[in-house]
Computed example of a mutant assay.
Amino acid sequence: MQVWHGIEQIPADLTGSVVTIGNFDGVHRGHRAVLETTISHARARRLPAVALTFDPHPAQVHRPEAAPSLLTGLTDRLVLLADAGIDVTLVVPYTLDFARATPEEFVRTYLLGALHAQAVVVGHDTRFGRDNSGDQHTMSALGREHGFDVEVVHDVGEDRRWSSSWARQLVESGDVAAAATVLGRPHRMRGVVVRGYARGRELGYPTANLAADSVGTIPADGVYAGWLRRHGGTGERLPAAISIGTNPTFGDPVRTVEAHVIGRDDLELYDEEVVVEFVTRLRPTLRFDGVEPLIAQMGHDVQDALAVLRASGV
């Protein structure tokens, strides 16, 4: 997949495209329905399928103090869009100045002037332009006026519409297994491995501690079965027992995310970017009366994690 950071990077010889627009946080199953429709139209027209997305997320610009945590940062969003089959992603820098454009100005500048869109695919809840004043009806009207087709993909889901907010709620509650149903994959976090207290190594279960600025919604405190992917997510996938919390047995004040790669004590992961994927929550965080019961529980956690991962087939 090609990535264009801003319309300045769009090739001058681009003569047409099929475009979809969105934040695509999490690239969940609802997003994928829109993406698949976009790709289908693009293939039929022999044009590139383009996803137009924004960075940073608009909420981080308009209300940073209340912005929700992101399921995926830009790096993982691009990976997931590529996995979905999108040919090109145009990343538009989201600024207050950009946000002042009317729906008409947005369409003229980006969809027509830059991308030469012949068709546009949107979700039924799409919003664009100043104060989110543009919606699916606005897009359809602009399509008729300017000569491009518009298809609206309506709610997609089973008992409830798949959405980023629902997936985020599930992750934050610790129900990462249910979140995976909405996302169509395990929830992930991406971060650099940093040095911690090294207690895990002393106890026989060394852990990779993610930096505080790691990207991705942090699940509720507890112990999880999951995977650790090395080299920024492109390397080998390793089974892991993942702990989130403040380590109450030792009275640590800082909440951490740390992954023990099961069966491996030879890994040197410091300063390496890794991706941690959460399959299911094994138990809540507990306080133990001493090191011995903690070590015994860690042994059970590792065995439980292995059993879950073997059964999941993920």
Rank of each mutant, 00 (worst) to 15 (best):
I10M: 11
A12Q: 09
V19T: 04
I21L: 06
N23F: 04
E36G: 15
T37L: 13
R43P: 04
R45W: 09
V50F: 10
L52Q: 08
H57R: 03
V61L: 11
A67V: 02
L74F: 02
L74Y: 00
L78S: 04
L80I: 12
A84Y: 02
T89G: 00
V91K: 07
T102L: 07
L111M: 02
A119Y: 04
V121R: 01
V121L: 09
G123M: 05
G129S: 10
N132F: 13
N132V: 08
N132R: 15
N132P: 05
G143P: 06
G143D: 09
R144A: 14
G147Y: 04
V150F: 07
R160M: 08
W162Y: 14
R168Y: 01
Q169H: 08
Q169L: 07
D175E: 14
V176P: 04
V176T: 07
A179K: 01
A179T: 04
G184M: 13
R185P: 12
R185C: 12
P186R: 06
R190L: 11
G191H: 01
V192D: 00
V193S: 00
R195K: 12
R199K: 14
P206S: 10
L210F: 00
A211P: 01
S214E: 04
A220Q: 06
D221Q: 15
V223T: 13
A225V: 04
G226H: 03
W227L: 14
L228T: 07
L228N: 03
E236I: 13
A241P: 11
S243H: 08
I244W: 03
I244S: 01
T246M: 13
T246Y: 08
H260I: 12
G263A: 05
R264G: 12
E272W: 05
E273W: 06
R283N: 06
T285C: 11
Q297C: 11
A307V: 09
L309N: 04
A311Q: 11
A311H: 09
G313T: 09
G313K: 02
